[in-house]
């Protein structure tokens, strides 16, 4: 029986051996470059959408669209999140302390701003134009840090390849908006993104999935795609909070008779 098992194992190895060699020969797709949001209406990728977990609602607010106050695209809010969203007023954001507060990548990556990707076998860097955010995607097999490690707006990301798809797992995100209209995620939000290239390698397609049981009764996701633009680069954002004072200065409109 032991011999039979060995024989079986040897036969399996003969069949299987060429596969790792072939896989080793095939480098992962090169995602490096400058990517600008593709605003094609109703763009989607059914194969990526099919990989989203059950009980996930796909939000229709990618890119230039946004939900008005009180609308959350099918996300099911916990009572506490619902109450907080009901209190939120857009004017609350127009203050010196708030206007340059960067969102987390849960909201930021779907906006109408470009980003650059730099890729190595062990580290992938996403450099975003929006709020100058930079993400390090660790591809070296490391785990996320302990739960009580510091959180940030870009969080801690690890990645791996599943065939030609880059899968990025992100935790340690500081609380921030999900939909830019009063709904905030908690510090325990968990995000998984899946990226792949189109056949011509000029379109980058992604799903962004997130769960936050402290805030939501279901999970959310977005489909996002970008077009490659050769020779372009992200500009510095360098947010200037005096924008808020310009708005506040018109609380009492300057009106004079002449």
């Amino acid at each position: 029986m032991r011999r039979a098992a060995r024989t079986g194992l040897a036969a399996w190895a003969v069949v299987a051996l060429p596969l790792p060699a072939a896989a080793a020969d095939r480098a992962p797709p090169d995602l490096a470059g400058f990517w600008s949001l593709d605003t094609t209406p109703d763009a989607t990728d059914p194969a990526l959408i099919a990989k989203l977990p059950p009980d996930t609602v796909v939000l229709d607010d990618t890119g230039v669209a946004e939900f008005p106050s009180g609308e959350f695209g099918g996300l099911k809010l916990k009572p506490g999140a619902q109450a907080a969203a009901a209190k939120w007023r857009p004017q609350d954001e127009m203050t010196l302390s708030r206007v340059c507060a960067a969102p987390s990548v849960v909201y930021a990556i779907q906006g109408p701003f470009p980003f650059e990707i730099y890729q190595t076998p062990t580290l992938i860097v996403f450099k975003y134009e929006y709020f100058d955010q930079v993400r390090l995607i660790f591809m070296d097999g490391r785990a996320h840090p302990p739960a009580d490690a510091p959180h940030s707006k870009v969080g801690h990301s690890t990645g791996h390849w599943e065939g030609d798809e880059l899968v990025v797992d992100t935790t340690h995100l500081a609380p921030a908006t999900i939909t830019n209209n009063g709904l905030d995620h908690s510090a325990n939000v968990h995000m998984v993104e899946r990226y792949k290239l189109s056949a011509d390698r000029r379109t980058l397609k992604a799903t962004q999935w997130f769960e936050d049981p402290e805030t939501l009764d279901n999970a959310g996701a977005r489909y996002i795609q970008w077009q490659k633009k050769d020779g372009s680069y992200v500009f510095p954002y360098d947010c200037d909070p005096s924008f808020a004072t310009q708005y506040q200065a018109i609380e009492e409109p300057a009106e004079t008779g002449r």
Partner: peptide
């Protein structure tokens, strides 16, 4: 005219037909 992120703004004095001026701001 402020040319800074997150938004630029343009201050504009708008005069109506009676000569009254109102300051608008465009984001």
């Amino acid at each position: 005219f402020h040319f800074t992120n997150p938004h630029g703004t343009i201050g504009l004095d708008v005069t109506d037909e009676t000569g009254k001026v109102q300051r608008w701001r465009a984001e």
